[in-house]
Every structure is written in C-alpha cells, then in structure tokens.
C-alpha cells in the first residue's frame, strides 16, 4: 500500500489568490430556471464563485500567490530548489507552465521544475511529492503550486458543471525542518477514468472524425463520482486513521476536497465526525478543483490572527480516479490572507 511517513519536511507558508471577478448562482436563473438553480444551490451549497477573466490563467493566480508568499517569508528566489505546478488548465498544450513560472518568479536555473496533471487529489499528491523531495533528497526548499481555472472549457449550457467550479491558484512553501512528520496514503483507480473527462482536444481524439463541440468540454458523471466518494474515500480515510492510530481527538480540522456540500455532509456522517470540524469554503468559492484544500485552509486560518498548532486531516478525491490523505500539524500563523486579483501575464 502506498502509505508512509515523510520526515524532516515542514510547511512554512501557504497563500491563495482567487480572481476578483465573482459569479453568483442566481445569475443563471434565466439559463436553467430559478427552481433548478435553487435545487442546485441546495445540493451543492454554492452561492457564488470567483471566476477567472478570459486573459487570466492558472499560472497568473499561482504567480500572485507565490510572489506574495516569497515576500512574506523573505525567501530569496534563488534559494528555491524545486518548483512543482499541479494543474489541469496549463497556459499552453506545451511547454509546461511551471517553466514560465520559474522565469517569472526569478528562480534559479538550478531549480527542478515540472508540471503534474492531477485534479481533485492534486494537493495530497503535491504535499507527498514536495515532502518526498526534501525527505529523501538533499533539497532544502520546495515550492508547490496548485491551481486551476476550471471554468475554461466548461459548456455554459451544462447545468451540472456551468455553476460548479471556482478558480484559484495556491502556493505552499516547504522547508527542511528537523523533527517534522507528514503521514500519507495515496491511491488510484484508473478504471474510473471516464467519470470526469474532457474527451477531445488531445491525441486520443486525433483519429476520430465524429467529435462534437461538447466533447471539448468537461463531462462529469455525478452519480459515479458520488458512489466513489461514499465507498472508496471513507474506507481509505478510516483505514488510514486506524493504521496510524489517529483518533478524532487528534484532529482539529478535517479539510476535504470541496466537491459539493452534499458530499461533504455525507462523508462527515459516514466518518462519524461533526460538521463543525469540517472546513467549508464551497459556499463562497465553488468546487475549486485541486486547489480546494489549500484554498479552504487559507479561508479558515488566513483571516484570523491565528496562532498555535492545528492538526489536520486532508483528503482529496476525484478525477482519475485518484485520491489520498495527509495527516500533519501546521503552525496556523503561516497562512496569508486570501488575495483577490485580476492581474495576468502580458508577456505570454
């Protein structure tokens, strides 16, 4: 089983930038009908979302988050040993957007830089990757960027996805810290690859002549995904907590991927945990894909004069199908307040 403990890697800061542009669910009354929109709000909990402007890319949001974070930490760009960008909405088909960000952030040529394509599970995988690099290699500082502008490529007439996604970019700074531990479990079930998919636009559709416009938009099978989140996900979380002897008393906050409020409530019920301990941002930010966990953390801890240590159970689950859990403790003063921006890169 892909589970273990990563040692000597700690999180020194987390920042999140979202577009200043807000879309309210009620704005869709004329498209889908007021009753349907209300039903959607009741189930998903989504009242509004921050949606990127046409010229605003994931890399722009991650850039703002990373720039602010490096300034707050007073870290020299040249001190970053690795930059990981996890996104499903890169700037270009090629090259990797992480390379553009390495340049924009002024990082060193000696910085390991690469993109990873993951969605809802991006953050738990990203924490594992960043901490592994520090724990097992001679690296001191790793910058993990996770973001998406999921509204790019959405069919505006598909009521399942048109009102669902919020956009955002996050930056998490890892540094070698003796004595710190991060526990993880990561899983994959590729047989469910069609559950959330954009079928067209890449090599698999190259030889197909019958592609329609809707094939270039995100298609989501809500009931398959829901079944996955009430079977595999709680089972993994339960086994993980049991394996490492982590009881509810050892967890201050459960931070799950913000899929929709119905799923969050159902998951809490299945795990027998009170909703008060489950962080929720989906009502104001929508389903924010891979960045939903760090965004929700910033939403929970970034606005307060937080201090002290929080023991967190993080779990991301979805597209792939891919999922996992992280258990760590974090000094809550490391969070920057939420950043709102309409900035975008003019040199791309």
């Amino acid at each position: 089983m892909a589970t273990g403990v990563l040692r000597n890697a700690g999180i020194k800061g987390i920042a999140c930038a979202v577009p200043d542009n807000i879309k309210r669910s009620e704005e869709y009354n004329s498209t889908f009908g007021a009753d349907s929109v209300q039903k959607f709000i009741n189930m998903t909990g989504i009242k509004k979302r921050h949606v990127a402007l046409d010229r605003q890319c994931t890399s722009d949001l991650c850039y703002v988050a990373a720039k602010n974070l490096l300034e707050k930490l007073n870290w020299e760009p040249s001190s970053i040993d690795a930059l990981i960008l996890i996104t499903q909405t890169p700037d270009y088909a090629v090259p990797p957007s992480s390379c553009v960000l390495q340049h924009r952030l002024g990082l060193s040529e000696d910085c390991i830089t690469f993109d990873v394509n993951l969605g809802c599970s991006a953050y738990v995988y990203g924490v594992w990757m960043a901490a592994t690099m520090i724990s097992t290699q001679n690296l001191n500082r790793v910058l993990l960027l996770v973001g998406d502008t999921s509204n790019f490529g959405i069919n505006p007439n598909d009521s399942a996805t048109a009102m669902l996604f919020g956009d955002g970019g996050t930056a998490t700074a890892f540094e070698r810290t003796e004595g710190k531990e991060i526990k993880y479990v990561l899983k994959t079930k590729g047989s469910g690859f069609k559950s959330i998919i954009v079928p067209a636009g890449h090599a698999r559709s190259r030889g197909k002549s019958n592609m329609e416009a809707s094939d270039y938009a995100l298609s989501m099978n809500g009931s398959e995904i829901f079944t996955f989140t009430i079977t595999d996900v709680p089972k993994t979380i339960k086994n993980f907590l049991q394996q490492y002897n982590i009881s509810d008393d050892n967890i201050d906050k459960y931070v799950f991927h913000q899929a929709n409020l119905f799923i969050l409530k159902h998951l809490a019920k299945k795990l027998n945990i009170p909703m008060e301990k489950v962080a929720v941002s989906i009502d104001r930010y929508g389903n924010t894909s891979g960045e939903s966990i760090p965004l929700t953390l910033v939403d929970a801890y970034g606005t307060k004069k937080s201090s002290g240590t929080a023991r967190l159970l993080l779990s991301g689950f979805g597209i792939g199908l891919s999922w996992g859990c992280i258990y760590l403790d974090i000094d809550t003063s490391v969070f920057l307040p939420m950043i709102y921006t309409n900035d975008y890169f003019r040199g791309g």
Partner: peptide
C-alpha cells in the same frame, strides 16, 4: 433528475 439519483444513492 441527476441530482435525485445522487440523493437516492445517499
């Protein structure tokens, strides 16, 4: 509709 399918699974 698709949302009631999910509610039924739940």
């Amino acid at each position: 509709d698709s949302m009631s399918v999910i509610s039924l699974i739940a």
